[in-house]
Amino acid sequence: MSTSPLPGDASNDPTDDQSGRFVRQPNGRVRPLSPHLQVWRFHLTMLGSILNRIAAGALSVGALFVVGWLAAAAFGRGAYETYASIMGSPVGLLIWFGLSLAGAYHLTAGVRHMIWDAGSGLTPKSATSLTIVSMVAAVVIVVAFWAILFMTGKVVL
């Protein structure tokens, strides 16, 4: 099997690369990956994409919290009230505020992707506009949600 010449020194072995700079193609050859963060000029759709991925990771942890909530409910009053008091504490509320923000942004950014998948909004200008709309909409949804929760007295600090 042929491998590409090593760029730079011999310790920089592309066949054992964990930095993501090289990737083994299906035909067995090692090829450099396309340019990454360090050479990109900042643009808003880039930030939108990174935040969407962070939101996805946060929501994955959030899914485990939801299963934990189900378990607490299934294990009876004592377990449920312990869980509710932890999640109703300032730290718990901060976690759920973050999760609701992640959820709202993942939703609006997902809708943005659906619009792109349909073939619309793909010029740089409209892609950036869609990204701004998705970010603002997510913040508006979450602030409104928590404002209602506090105003109705369902959540107290």
Binding site: A84, S100, F145, L149, G153, K154, V156
Partner: peptide
């Protein structure tokens, strides 16, 4: 549902 369940207790 999160709104409905918040503060609703066991």
């Amino acid at each position: 549902s999160g709104w409905a369940l918040s503060g609703a207790g066991y």
